[in-house]
Simulated assay, not measured.
Amino acid sequence: MAAEKGSSFMDPFKGLLLTYLMPESCYDEFFLNFNFLDVKLPQILKLVGASSAEGLSLQSVLLELVAITGTMAYSIVNKFPFSAWGEALFLMLQTLAIGFLIFHYNQKTSRGVLFVLVYGAVLSVLLSPVTPPALITTLQASNMPAIVIGRLIQAVSNYQNGHTGQLSAISAFLLFAGSLARIFTSLQETGDALMALTYIISSMCNGILVLQLLYYWNRKPPAKTKGD
C-alpha cells in the first residue's frame, strides 16, 4: 500500500526522471521498492571519476550526517519498522564515504580516516543503553536546523562559485524526490509527526539545490592552470 501511494504521488515526475536521469529499472527500485542503497552512489562515482571534490562543502556533508544519524538513532530507539528508516542506514554509509572522499581529495586522507573512526565511536555510544532516550529525541529534533543550515551552506557555496562543481545532479534529484515520497510513507508507517516534518523540511532544502543545478546546468568549474 505504501509503495502504491508513493508511486501515484510520483507519477507527475516519472516522465521527466525516465527521460533525463535514469532507466525505468532504477525508477522502480527507488520509488516502488524503496531501495535507497544507490541514492548517493552517483555522487560517489562522480567524485572518484573526477578525482576531485571541488564545489562540495564539507560543513554541509557533516550537518547532513548529523541529521541522518539522528533519524536513524531515533527510529531504532523507538523500534520503528526497518521499512520506515532503512534508507537512513544506507544514506549514512554513503554520506560517510563522501565525507572521507572530500578529505582525501583535499590531501587530508589521514584526517578522513580519523573522521570515519570517530563517527563510528560516536554512533556506537548513541545506540548503546548508556545514552538516554531524551538525548536521542533532542538529536532528532535538531535535524531540521541541521538540514536547513547544511543545505544553505551548500547553496551559498554554489552561488559564490558560480557553478555546482562535482555536485551530482542524479543524487540531488533522487534525494529531492525521495524526501517528498517519504513524507507520506513515514506518516503511514510510523504516525510520527516529527519524522514527517523532518522530511518536509528536507524536501524544501533539497529543492533549492535542484533549482541551482538546473540554473547552473552548463556552467563548469574554471580550468586550473599549472600555476594553480
Score class of each variant (00 low, 15 high):
Ala2Arg: 05
Thr131His: 10
Gln160Ile: 03
Leu96Asn: 03
Glu87Thr: 12
Val156Lys: 02
Cys26Lys: 15
Leu16Val: 12
Thr71Lys: 00
Leu126Ile: 09
Leu152Gly: 01
Tyr216Ser: 06
Val66Asp: 02
Ala3Gln: 05
Phe184Ala: 01
Leu93His: 13
Met204Ala: 11
Lys79Thr: 08
Asp192Leu: 06
Phe100Ser: 03
Gly191Ala: 05
Phe13Lys: 10
Lys79Ala: 09
Ile98Cys: 11
Thr185Pro: 07
Leu63Asp: 12
Cys26Glu: 15
Thr225Leu: 04
Val148His: 04
Leu139Cys: 02
Leu32Gln: 08
Gln140Ile: 05
Ala2Cys: 09
Met204Tyr: 06
Phe36Asp: 04
Ala193Cys: 00
Pro222Thr: 06
Ala169Tyr: 15
Gly165Ser: 03
Val113Asn: 06
Leu93Val: 06
Ile44His: 06
Gly70Thr: 14
Met92Asn: 04
Phe176Ser: 12
Ser157Cys: 10
Arg111Ser: 09
Thr19Cys: 08
Gly99Met: 03
Phe30Thr: 15
Gln160Glu: 13
Asn33Ser: 01
Leu152Asp: 00
Ile102Gln: 08
Tyr27Ala: 05
Met10Gln: 04
Ser128Asn: 14
Leu101Gln: 07
Pro23Cys: 12
Tyr105Leu: 02
Leu139Glu: 14
Val122Ala: 13
Val61Trp: 02
Gly227Met: 01
Ala121Met: 06
Ser60Lys: 07
Ser83Tyr: 11
Ala196Asp: 03
Lys5Trp: 15
Ala50Ser: 11
Asn158Ala: 10
Phe90Asn: 03
Thr137Ser: 07
Phe115Gln: 03
Tyr27Glu: 09
Met92Cys: 01
Ser124Trp: 15
Leu21Gln: 10
Ser202His: 12
Thr109Pro: 02
Gln212Cys: 04
Ala67Arg: 10
Ser186Val: 11
Phe115Glu: 00
Gly86Phe: 14
Phe176Met: 13
Met195Asp: 15
Gln212Met: 11
Lys5Met: 07
Gly49Leu: 09
Tyr216His: 15
Leu214Met: 03
Leu209Thr: 14
Phe82Met: 09
Leu41Ile: 09
Leu194Met: 15
Ile201Thr: 13
Ser157Tyr: 02
Phe176Tyr: 14
Gly120Phe: 15
Ile147Met: 05
Leu167His: 04
Leu96Lys: 11
Pro81Met: 10
Leu32Thr: 07
Gly162Arg: 08
Thr198Arg: 13
His104Tyr: 03
Gln212Ile: 13
Met144Gln: 13
Leu152His: 03
Ser25Asp: 09
Ser57His: 04
Leu175Cys: 04
Ser124Glu: 04
Thr138Glu: 06
Leu65His: 09
Phe80Thr: 02
Gly49Ile: 11
Leu37Gly: 01
Gly191Tyr: 15
Leu174Tyr: 13
Ala134Asp: 00
Val39Trp: 09
Leu126Pro: 02
Lys5Thr: 12
Val125Leu: 13
Ala196Leu: 02
Ile153Arg: 07
Gly6Glu: 13
Ala193Ser: 05
Ile201Phe: 09
Phe115Arg: 07
Ala50Glu: 03
Lys46Tyr: 06
Ile149Met: 09
Met92Thr: 02
Thr225Gln: 11
Asn35Phe: 00
Phe82Arg: 15
Ser168Trp: 14
Pro133Tyr: 00
Glu4Ile: 05
Ser202Ile: 13
Gln107Leu: 06
Val148Pro: 01
Leu18Phe: 06
Met1Leu: 10
Tyr199Asp: 06
Thr225Trp: 15
Tyr119Ala: 11
Met1Gln: 07
Gln94Leu: 00
